[in-house]
């Protein structure tokens, strides 16, 4: 469960200081789904980075299961990211030189697993997203939808508690977008993850049980119905 209390993140633009997030209070229950929407530059990605321990707030606390990510030293934060948090990015961010299987394996490297075990788990993750036959393909040889599915497999291969997705369908065509969102929602339901997704897609937002709108650094949450 996430508990954000008075989270403020200040950035500098030239001589000017801008609050990307301003006094945000937010609770995200474990196993729930939260869809975050808002205008560009409103603070959506900053909020996601706070949740993922990729950045620290200027003020306030970001607690994950009672641990304040804002106060943790970098090695412990890195460890939490490696064990508990999965990321899916809009730009996919696969390593171009590595095959699909090896890209998935990169998420298991920090866990210190043996190479054979890494390969087996990565292969299973690829199979779960329907890409078993593309395991040896390089990212450049895959379609946009396939690349994003590899990224999903990479995020979920370590069985994280949290899945954070930053506009995962932003660069995909309509068919691929539906395919990837169905996959993510299916996995969320199957694995009982806490699933936070930033999106501009109104279709996704309409389906979300809980919607947070981030505007000028402030967050407004609207409950839509049951978590699942």
């Amino acid at each position: 469960m996430y508990r954000l209390t008075g989270v403020t993140k200040r950035y500098r633009r030239g001589d000017e200081t801008v609050d990307a997030l301003s006094g945000v209070d937010l609770v995200i229950e474990g196993g729930s789904q939260l869809v975050i929407q808002g205008p560009a530059g409103g603070g959506k990605t900053t909020l996601l980075q706070m949740l993922g321990g990729l950045d620290r707030p200027t003020e306030g606390s970001v607690e994950l299961d009672g641990t304040d990510l804002a106060r943790l030293p970098e090695p412990r934060l890195t460890r939490i990211r490696s064990e508990s948090i999965g990321f899916v990015f809009r730009t996919v961010n696969l390593i171009p030189a590595l095959t699909a299987l090896e890209n998935v394996e990169t998420a298991l490297v920090p866990l210190g697993l043996a190479a054979a075990q890494r390969r087996q788990q990565a292969a299973e993750a690829l199979e779960s997203v329907g890409l078993a036959e593309h395991r040896d393909g390089l990212p450049g040889e895959l379609s946009g939808g396939q690349r994003q599915r590899v990224a999903v497999a990479r995020a979920l291969v370590k069985r994280p508690k949290v899945l954070l997705a930053d506009e995962p369908t932003g660069d995909l065509d309509e068919d691929a977008r539906d395919e990837v969102m169905s996959l993510l929602e299916g996995l969320w339901r199957a694995h009982g993850l806490t699933f936070v997704v930033v999106t501009h897609d109104s279709a996704i937002a309409r389906r979300a049980p809980r919607l947070a709108t981030v505007r000028k650094g402030r967050v407004a949450v609207r409950e839509r119905g049951p978590a699942r």
Binding site: L54, T78, F87, T106, P110
Partner: peptide, 10 residues
């Protein structure tokens, strides 16, 4: 940056 988000240490 991606590797760091995946938990690779510096």
């Amino acid at each position: 940056g991606t590797l760091r988000t995946l938990g690779w240490s510096s």
